[in-house]
Simulated assay, not measured.
Amino acid sequence: MTGILPAREPVELVVFDCDGVLVDSEPIAVRTHVALGAELGWPLSESDVMNRFVGRSTTSIGEQIAERLGEETARTWGERFQEMHSVAVDESLAPVDGIVEALDGLERAGLGPANWCIASSGSHEKMRHTLGKVGLYERFAGRIFSAHEVERGKPAPDLFLHAARRMGVDPSRCVVVEDSKFGVQAATAAGMRSVGYAGGLTPAQWLTGLATAVLTDMRLLPALVTARETADATGD
């Protein structure tokens, strides 16, 4: 863990991204996009997908594909992605390592479910499927927000500001947990502190300097967001 969360305001709301933060779905999504790119005429490496797509809304990804391959191919890509992703999720999806312990730790520290929400680029249908598959949906039910509800997706701040308004919390008292640079940029634009999670696909160097703090072990999240101003901590 590197960095601290400045204690200018106590944390009242922890805003979680979904893919790569709660559910370990990013490797599935990346592999699926790589396979579709090879099939439909846009060869992409895993690094290309990470740079272009991860953290972006479905609409933004579709726009990039349409610009490269045309609207019809973009529709085909989107439809095939949903089908292939759904099958892979049912076969192999797991919660992010340490997230259950992190949620339990937040509750013990006095930040219970009423102080959590999800703000994700994914659709509500997708999140019901993925979160339900790993047993986390009920822990967030009624407090899940999608980029489909706002005009602009990440890195614009719209989604995080929408979530804060709906939850009745000032942005200065929110902390966003994100694994993508686009998500961290959105949190910053919203005036929120951010924790960059680099325990999955995203390299820590992509988040260092962008996020308020970076961690590689999700189990450290409760101590990080509930601590008052402390000295820098380092470690894995």
Rank of each mutant, 00 (worst) to 15 (best):
A147M: 11
P113M: 10
S47F: 06
M127D: 14
S180T: 09
V23D: 00
S45P: 13
C18T: 03
V11S: 04
G200T: 11
H85V: 09
A119E: 01
G20L: 01
E101F: 06
S57N: 10
S92H: 10
E91H: 12
E151K: 12
R52T: 13
P222N: 09
V30M: 04
V30E: 02
L159G: 11
L13H: 05
R165P: 02
T59Y: 04
M127L: 15
Y137R: 14
A156F: 00
V11M: 04
V134N: 08
A114I: 03
G209H: 01
L131D: 08
R56F: 11
M50T: 06
L36I: 09
I4N: 08
L161Y: 04
E39H: 10
K181N: 04
M218Y: 13
R219H: 09
D179A: 01
F53A: 07
A29M: 03
L159D: 11
V49Q: 04
G132N: 07
A114V: 10
E151N: 04
G168K: 03
I4R: 14
H124F: 13
M167G: 07
T59I: 05
A66T: 03
R152L: 02
S92Y: 05
R228P: 14
G37F: 05
R75V: 06
E71K: 13
D97V: 11
G199E: 14
C117R: 04
D179R: 00
I28W: 02
A204H: 11
